[in-house]
Structure formats: structure tokens, C-alpha cells
Amino acid sequence: MSEIDLLLREYERFVALPWQSHVAGPERVWFAVYDPSQERRLRLRVPEFEIATTKAGHTWRFVDLTDAFAHWMEGHKYRQAYFQRPQLMTDAVLAGFKATVVEQIVTALTGPDVDANTVVAVGGLASLFGFVRASEVMEAVAPSIRGRLLVFFSGSYENKMYRLLDARDGWNYLAIPITAQAQR
């Protein structure tokens, strides 16, 4: 079985478990962790995660961040200057991008069709790499989670540390890991 087959099987088992209703936002986050080399295979299988979710009696909403930076940059007043001199894109400028990403996810999490029984899934998180820290985005959106937030996480989880794209720096987060290997 492929890594994505195993991850999907583990997700099917996990999403069918009873949900605790009185948990904090960060504990409502699930990271479906997979090797970055499996990104295209995972993307092809996202509809199967939706099927597993609805089969377990939950509703599904999907947010794709893949093009978030391109859309943000397209509307930016100084985009031409940033293309000519990328060093002008400071942390202060990128804070605006982070705010846009947070708003996109929060809008999905708080939509009128989202309730405590909804899985809001986020794809394309790796496209934020180098622009904003995924940990900061997760911390910002956690208070808005009504049901569960499933994050397709292209990276690794080891010793309670998450590493997006297997980057050198990782972070310890309360999210529940779903991996191709069953958690004991």
C-alpha cells in the first residue's frame, strides 16, 4: 500500500471516532502528515478524504492556499517594485500576506454552512513556506474552529515536532497528527 493509501485509511478510522466537544481550538486541529514527495498523489486523493468525512456523518469544506501568494501579490500596490527588488519584501510587508491567509481560513471556518460537525480541510500549506510561518497561521485561526480543522501537512512529525517540508526548524503544536502509521 502506498503512503497516501495508508494515510487515507488512518484518516477514515480517525474521522469516525467520536469528537470531544469541550476541547480548545489547537486541539481541534488535525495534521494529515505526509512526505513532501507525495504532494501530487495527495492532491489527487483529496476527494476521497471528503468521502470518508461524509461517510462518518460530518460535513466538509475545503480551502486551497496554493495560489494565495499569487493572488495577494496580484492585488498589491507595489508588486512591480517587489518583482524588480525582492529584498524590499520585508517581514512587515509579509505580515499583510499572513493576515490575508488567516482571513481566508477564518472565513471558511466561520461560514454559515460550518458548524461543530464540519471538517474544514486546508490544502496547499506548503506554498506558504518562505513567506509566513505555518505555526503562526495555525495559532491565529485556532480560536475560530467550530468543528475540526484538517491540515494537509507536507512534511514530518517526529518526537512531537512538526516540520513543514522537513525544514530545519520545527515546532511543537497541540495538533493531533494523522500519519500513515497508526498512532498508539
Rank of each mutant, 00 (worst) to 15 (best):
G25L: 04
P26I: 08
P26H: 07
E27Y: 09
R28I: 03
R28P: 03
R28M: 05
R28Q: 05
V29P: 07
V29T: 11
V29N: 08
A32F: 01
A32M: 01
Y34F: 15
P36I: 12
S37T: 10
S37Y: 07
Q38T: 13
Q38P: 04
Q38M: 15
Q38V: 10
Q38E: 15
E39M: 10
E39V: 14
R41A: 15
R41E: 15
R41N: 14
L42V: 14
R43S: 12
R43L: 14
R43Y: 10
L44Y: 13
L44A: 15
L44T: 13
P47I: 11
E48F: 15
E50H: 12
I51G: 15
A52I: 06
T53H: 05
T53L: 04
T54Q: 11
K55Y: 12
A56L: 06
A56G: 07
T59Y: 00
T59W: 01
W60E: 05
W60I: 06
R61V: 02
V63A: 09
D64I: 14
L65K: 12
T66I: 01
T66A: 09
T66H: 06
D67E: 15
D67S: 15
A68Q: 11
F69Y: 15
F69D: 12
A70G: 14
W72I: 10
W72K: 10
M73D: 09
E74L: 14
E74H: 14
E74A: 14
H76P: 03
Q80A: 14
Q80D: 13
A81Y: 08
Q84P: 00
P86I: 06
P86L: 07
Q87H: 00
Q87A: 00
L88T: 01
L88D: 03
T90N: 07
A92Y: 00
A92N: 01
V93Y: 08
L94S: 03
L94K: 11
A95D: 10
A95L: 07
G96R: 05
F97Y: 15
K98F: 00
A99Q: 09
V101A: 12
V102N: 09
V102F: 07
E103V: 03
Q104V: 04
Q104K: 12
V106Y: 05
V106T: 13
V106D: 05
T107I: 06
A108W: 04
A108V: 05
L109H: 02
L109Q: 03
G111C: 01
P112C: 00
D113H: 01
D113V: 03
D115R: 01
D115Y: 02
A116F: 06
A116C: 06
A116G: 10
N117M: 06
V120N: 03
V120Y: 01
V120M: 04
V122T: 05
G124H: 12
L125V: 15
A126E: 14
S127E: 15
S127N: 13
S127L: 08
F129H: 14
F131R: 12
F131N: 07
F131E: 04
F131Q: 04
V132Y: 09
S135A: 11
E136V: 03
M138A: 06
E139T: 07
E139M: 03
A140Y: 09
V141E: 13
A142D: 04
P143S: 10
P143D: 08
P143C: 11
S144G: 06
R148K: 13
R148H: 08
